[in-house]
Amino acid sequence: MSRHVVSFTVNGVPKRVELEARRTLADMLREDCGLTGTHLGCEHGVCGACTVLVDGEPVRSCLMFGVQAEGCAIRTIEGLAAPDGTLNVLQRAFRTHHGLQCGFCTPGFLMLATWLLERDERLDEAALRHAVSSNLCRCTGYQTILDAIRAAAQELDRWEDSAAGEARR
């Protein structure tokens, strides 16, 4: 069946990969690019563990084919920390607030939260809860994940206090 050559960037680094059309973006990142930070949970779009950013938007990388990434700018968990390994604000907040336990779902939550913190609109409690409902975590019970993203948003001055948020906390 058809094989294709795909050119794209991952975390700013140009890549050129030859693959089968049926190779998902997630498998392309893990198998062809060696970037195993993107985790595959359910492989049918339910759990969100494989969330990456494609041209700035969050995407389930198990529901896109690698061949479709032609010309795209992809960002993965490997691109968050500084080259010397220093964690960024969001990663530090996850550590401080115990936003992870086993860590399997964490790359997906971090990429989803990266998008939330980079949008034009400031983040508030309702938008945070609505967005985070897209990803599954079987360890934390979610409260610490919300705490971590909220803290990162506050540190980056992207947080908007809302009456609804105060009532829920």
Binding site: S2, H4, E20, A21, R22, D27, F65, V67, Q68, E70
Partner: peptide
Amino acid sequence: MAAMKPAAFDYHAP
């Protein structure tokens, strides 16, 4: 669950 991979197909992007 076993790994779930799509069956092979020909791909076109007109």
